[in-house]
Design a protein around this nucleic acid. Structure first.
Length: 411
DNA sequence: CATCCACAGGAAGGACGGGGGT
DNA sequence: ACCCCCGTCCTTCCTGTGGATG
């Protein structure tokens, strides 16, 4: 009896809050993959991308295009926006212009990239089992049967190259040479936020991919403000946003090198938190909570994707930096070894730890800067780049889920 | 100014699990 | 049923290197 009425009360409460909450008018507007109708402060970039791709409307192969810019500077949004418009226009003119978007951070092997391209022209590739060469052959065959223009967007292309080299880029940029003249033409758009990325490329790939180059500058706080205001107007009810919330989000994101994606996430999550709390508006406190929650989620996601020893290394870093600002590779390896021994896990080699450290660095959860201490050798300066408690709770949570309870070996 | 430390990171390969084509 | 391929995690062996120190 008592229990039943309690749970009714709990639900009653949740329902009441949900009904009362009048925060989001259209939450999707703030979702990370939403491409808005207008992209403030990116007019120049739209113009540039547009003028490169417009060639497709004459049935020509547009030049390959290379886009640089830090995260959240609108590279992906602008590219997709232009491509969408281009496709519509082509349709009006009765031309075949298609595009594929591949995020090579998620689709991080040549095989997956090729299979994504293939599926965009209706060629199904099994998700494993074939050799990459075989997939390539099938793709070429399929392309030679098609007409028109295909634009391949490779987002975060630096990840692919770092992990797998530039071989498929070489192949993709030359794919036209293997096709008969009247078949589908393939253009590549490479997007990266790593300026040094070009150095990793073979000279031939570099010149071919960089036929056109566009650099996206970061947004400043004022521009972020405009972007957020515009989206907020569509996403929220008019009274739902307290004064100062938008500019606070903009300021936080501007501090993180003008990352508009971060700013939009912040606003969306703040709204969600406010809604959950049954508040009828979003205020700065919600934004602060949102910031913490986003950090937590990000850390949790990263940590749970990590192999066992990488998590151990993270734990070891936590331990090794307890009483000092940073640790070094050799020192860390010792801490790690002790930790592993205590739990009864075989250690991996220092070579492997070296790779794990690079991975953790790339994921942004630690910073591992290589320095030389002269006579005392070269090493990495290793420190956490996320809040310590965030990492601790992520590790605890994940080790509970995976039932590998190395975090508290004593219980 | 050469030396030499303490590593970085490339190359090749292997074990293993998940999946092909024929 | 057979043999093949791929990605992941790891090993072994190796060459390369920035700069304080002798």
């Amino acid at each position: 009896m008592v229990r039943a009425s309690m749970s009714e009360d709990i639900l009653e409460d949740i329902f009441a809050k949900a009904v009362k909450a009048r925060i989001f008018k259209k939450r999707d507007i703030l979702s990370p993959d939403y491409v808005p109708e207008r992209l403030p402060h990116r007019e120049n970039e739209i113009r540039k991308v547009g003028s490169v791709l417009a060639q497709a409307l004459k049935g020509n192969k547009p030049n390959n295009l290379f886009i640089y810019g830090l995260t959240g500077t609108g590279k992906t949004a602008v590219t997709l926006y232009v491509l969408r418009r281009l496709k519509t226009k082509a349709l009006e003119l009765g031309l075949r212009v298609n595009y594929v978007y591949v995020n090579t951070r998620q689709r991080d092997t040549p095989y997956k990239v090729l299979s994504d391209i293939a599926s965009s022209i209706g060629l199904r590739i099994p998700f494993t089992g074939l050799s990459t060469a075989e997939v390539y052959v099938r793709l070429v065959k399929a392309l030679s049967r098609e007409r028109g223009v295909l634009i391949v967007v490779l987002d975060e292309i630096d990840w692919l190259v770092r992990k797998r080299g530039d071989d498929i880029l070489y192949r993709l940029t030359r794919i036209g040479n293997e096709l008969p003249g009247d078949s589908m033409k393939v253009s590549i758009i490479g997007i990266t936020n790593d300026i040094r990325f070009v150095e990793m490329l073979d000279a031939r790939v570099r010149s071919s991919l960089g036929e056109e180059e566009i650099v996206f500058p970061p947004y400043n706080a004022e521009q972020l403000n405009d972007i957020l205001s515009e989206r907020a107007r569509e996403a929220f009810y008019p009274e739902a946003i307290k004064r100062g919330v938008i500019s606070y989000c903009a300021a936080l994101a501007a501090r993180e090198h003008g990352d508009a994606r971060r700013a939009l996430d912040l606003l969306r999550v703040a709204g969600e938190i406010a809604e959950r709390e049954g508040s009828s508006y979003v205020d700065v406190e919600h934004v602060k909570k949102a910031w913490i929650q986003i950090e937590r989620n990000r850390a949790k996601e990263i940590v749970s994707s990590l192999p066992l020893h990488a998590r151990l290394v993270l734990k070891a870093i936590l331990e090794a930096t307890k009483d000092k600002p940073y640790t070094t590779t050799g020192e860390l390896y010792e801490v790690y070894t002790n930790l592993a021994k205590k739990i009864g896990i075989e250690v991996v080699t220092q070579r492997r730890i070296s790779d794990i450290l690079s991975e953790l660095d790339m994921l942004g959860i630690i910073s591992a800067q290589i320095i030389s201490r002269g006579r005392y050798g070269k090493t990495r300066i290793i420190k956490l780049s996320v809040d310590e408690t965030t990492v601790v709770s992520a590790l605890e949570e994940v080790s509970r889920e995976k039932q590998q309870n190395f975090y508290h070996p004593n219980n």
